[in-house]
């Protein structure tokens, strides 16, 4: 594990190295963390990003604070602070960040009907992974995922790395219509569609829960920084959930 190297450099504090601050036009700074060589995701880095996002939100100087997998966008109010003041404020927050920040403990259980009409691409992944349907579902559902970021469309939840046998490239040509609640795989990522939309992810299942529902008081079921636990359900119970 390349992480070991960082640990020896920085054992007392944190396994995560200090990030780069990149200028993003005149009103934003992008905080970018280098991933350990040869990896595409680090839970430590993502947890640090969400903790940093939370710390920065205490200030009124920011217009948008947008966490992602290995980066964090901070758009500042140019009428309140300058670019250099924004950067020093970010540096201060990075320095004061508690070692080993934990992501929020909010675990959300998501019922999923795997395969069949709700997961048309599960056969393709079964073939490449050489797993039985049952083993594949178990492998996907027994992993506790981090919600790394929301993006693409409202509520679309980008989750942390899926177990390696499930990794699968996107469709070469995106589908014109993917129903809301579909659970997909794209490369090493897994995610949930918040809305009906076109999309290229390999769809393995679908949840009857609405990730984005404008009629709810809080339209968003999932926030970046939450954890997701999938619960496999039988397809015949799918409609019963749709309330």
């Amino acid at each position: 594990m390349p992480l070991k190297k960082n640990q020896s450099l920085n054992t007392a504090r944190n396994t995560v190295q200090d990030p780069h601050l990149l200028d993003y036009g005149d009103s934003s700074v992008l905080i970018h963390y280098d991933l350990p060589a040869g990896t595409h995701y680090s839970a430590d880095i993502n947890n640090t990003i969400h903790a940093l996002a939370q710390a920065l939100r205490t200030s009124q100087n920011w217009l948008e604070i947008v966490p992602a997998y290995d980066s964090l966008l901070c758009q500042f109010d140019m009428s309140k602070i300058t670019l250099s003041a924004a950067k020093s404020s970010i540096k201060k927050h990075i320095k004061n960040l508690k070692p080993k920040p934990k992501s929020t403990q909010n675990v959300i259980e998501i019922p999923v009907a795997y395969g069949g009409a709700h997961g048309p691409d599960i056969d393709a992944i079964q073939k490449t992974s050489k797993l039985s349907h049952k083993a594949l579902v178990k492998l996907h559902a027994e992993t506790l995922y981090n919600v790394c970021m929301l993006g693409f469309i409202p509520g679309f939840s980008f989750l942390s790395e899926a177990p390696e046998p499930l990794h699968h490239p996107r469709h070469a040509t995106p589908r014109a219509h993917v129903p809301a609640g579909s659970i997909g795989i794209a490369g090493w990522q897994t995610g949930i569609y918040g809305l009906d939309s076109p999309g290229g992810w390999q769809i393995i299942g679908r949840t009857p829960l609405k990730l984005f529902d404008p009629s709810r008081e809080d339209p968003f079921l999932i926030k970046a920084g939450d954890k997701i636990q999938f619960i496999p359900i039988d397809a015949k119970f799918f409609d019963g959930f749709s309330v």
């Binding site: 036009g25 992008l30 991933l35 992602a68 997998y69 290995d70 980066s71 964090l72 970021m149 490369g187």
Partner: peptide, 12 residues
């Protein structure tokens, strides 16, 4: 290298 998804804003 394929880029990891990262934030975007209008005007990018």
């Amino acid at each position: 290298v394929s880029m990891t998804s990262s934030p975007l804003i209008p005007g990018t």
